[in-house]
């Protein structure tokens, strides 16, 4: 069982690491999701082999358990659930960042985005404009979006 779990964790982590190294930003996010999932598997695995929760080590049992019966550790489940929710929110944030980049460049390829930024910077230098151009209307636009979504 330990070998099987370790293999699964390793394969999931490996595939995730491969995807993170791609140029396509969506693949990067999918890769990150896989890597986080390998961590959750690892947390669950930390409770699997224990059998009698943390009781053997002198931890206080969460529920009174009949003598001799095995119970898996409830704490790892809670930990995995918490970590899962955290990673869900971060992944949602990453996807929204990608969407923002896509809206600006109509591509999700990292190299294309960098190239577009370089071109923009060069164009700005040629026009001798200050590089840190602020957008005064950005605030109003946001409000506009809000009104529409209501």
């Amino acid at each position: 069982m330990i070998l099987a779990i370790s293999l699964v964790v390793a394969v999931v982590f490996g595939s995730g690491a491969f995807l993170v190294l791609q140029r396509d930003l969506f693949r990067v996010v999918v890769g990150l999701t896989l890597i986080s999932n390998s961590a959750f598997l690892f947390i669950i695995a930390a409770g699997l082999t224990r059998g009698t929760a943390g009781f053997a080590q002198g931890a206080v049992p969460v529920l009174p358990i009949p003598e001799g019966s095995a119970a898996s550790d409830p704490l790892v489940q809670a930990m995995a659930l918490t970590a899962l929710v955290i990673s869900l929110s971060t992944i949602a944030l990453l996807l929204s960042l990608i969407y923002r980049l896509y809206v600006a460049h109509e591509t999700v390829d990292l190299e294309d985005i960098s190239e577009a930024e370089m071109r923009l910077a060069e164009a700005l230098e040629r026009e001798e404009e200050p590089e840190e151009e602020e957008k005064p209307e950005a605030g109003q636009e946001e409000e506009e979006i809000e009104k529409r979504s209501r």
């Binding site: 923002r100 809206v103 600006a104 460049h105 923009l120 950005a138 636009e141 506009e144 979006i145």
Partner: peptide, 9 residues
């Protein structure tokens, strides 16, 4: 809103 920024870029 959002797309105006894109056009600007």
């Amino acid at each position: 809103g959002v797309e105006d920024l894109a056009k600007g870029e």
